[in-house]
Design a protein around this nucleic acid. Sequence first.
DNA 1: GGGGAACCGTACCGTACGGTACACTGCTTG
DNA 2: CAAGCAGTGTACCGTACGGTACGGTTCCCC
Lengths: 231, 231
Amino acid sequence: MDQVAPAAPPEFSARQNDVLEVALRLLVEGGDKGLTTAGIARAANCSKESLYKWFGDRDGLLAAMITYQSSKVRAAAGPGAPPERAAFRALLVTFAEDLLTVLSGDVSLALNRLAIGEAGGAEARLGGLVLKAGRRPIEARARALLEAGRAAGHVAFADTGDAYHTLYGLIVRDLHVRLLLGDRPEPGETDRRARAATAIDQFLRLFGVPPRADETKPERAAAGQAVTNRV
Amino acid sequence: MDQVAPAAPPEFSARQNDVLEVALRLLVEGGDKGLTTAGIARAANCSKESLYKWFGDRDGLLAAMITYQSSKVRAAAGPGAPPERAAFRALLVTFAEDLLTVLSGDVSLALNRLAIGEAGGAEARLGGLVLKAGRRPIEARARALLEAGRAAGHVAFADTGDAYHTLYGLIVRDLHVRLLLGDRPEPGETDRRARAATAIDQFLRLFGVPPRADETKPERAAAGQAVTNRV
DNA sequence: GGGGAACCGTACCGTACGGTACACTGCTTG
DNA sequence: CAAGCAGTGTACCGTACGGTACGGTTCCCC
């Protein structure tokens, strides 16, 4: 919002990407304290001087790691055509599964831990960056999907953001925070596909519009009995 | 589980509680880096030597802060009598509101940030401690409540833990992680009572059993149409 | 081929923090 | 009153890390 030309985010050379990759590996292995400039330079066969030339300071390096990693997890594009009913459900399940996979990833967890650990102090720059670079794209994908489903008459809700937050809650529950705290996932949580399907079932029970005899006229579907959405 | 006599967790003297209070304040204000042993000693008018005598080392001090804080947020006792329908819903709403209040608290956020930041490295002792001392009591309270509601025939589910996780997800959504990352709550999220009521409404739409004409015989209510709970 | 830019490896500096030692003080107890 | 205990304040030590400087090497471009 405060960026004039966001079309060209700071991209890095191949060499710098290699260094960022090494830094991410070190971060995953050793956490915050395992990520020292000397350690990165040694592991990546580069000099500390280059690190500071490329990334400014340690914080710039961490920020670069976040943007680099989120650039790798580009979300798939939204649906082009208004999805048919079963396809819409399938897209939701895929989204849920992708979300669980991303949030459970080693690198994602390590970066979130890093940003959260930094967030308490005076400057919470990394936290905002994770929110912007990491979560916003995912949210945007989900919102587009939800609104396409609403336009097609499969779901009904007043506030897209509210529906998204509920969807997120049903999918992720407390798994993310528990993983961040170092907990092991419970046996039932390892089957991400099944968890995703269950969550979407629940979401559609809350926000779904029952199929109609004349599926061709989904115009005024938003008045279904599914949503109260009290204010 | 590995503790022989957990009836007497390490309690601290009044003086030590004062010190822990000061340490929590420093942690809230300055985050991880703002919490140095010298800083605590100065702010609490005690000597570093006393800190190390009382708490062993820095990690012991952090652990003491966690147990001290969670001892202050003792959850209310479970329902004694099987709750009537409206009362059951009210208890759920109260639980939801309490949960949101606790998770949004300054101290809770700071301690979670601390534990999460530490969790990446070799020893994730603080993370486990937060899970055990902070979250388990809340979960126990909710589970007791849910099972009382099931026994009274108001809700139906096969796995209590699964129902609890869904309840948690509907209440908290992604608010906790966003707050941990330093995000500000959205306007609609500040009214915790309304959010709690909405979440419980949704939960009851998923797991609720419709009231019956003969409310006096809630015995075989678990066969209601509300739950599929696919495995 | 020569000049220069980028970069590696290492050595170095200042600082800040965890942890320890020690002298001094006030309060309790026999 | 004397002894002792608990605690305070300060000084101190070792280490580890962020950041800088510098010599040597490679490689590209003119």
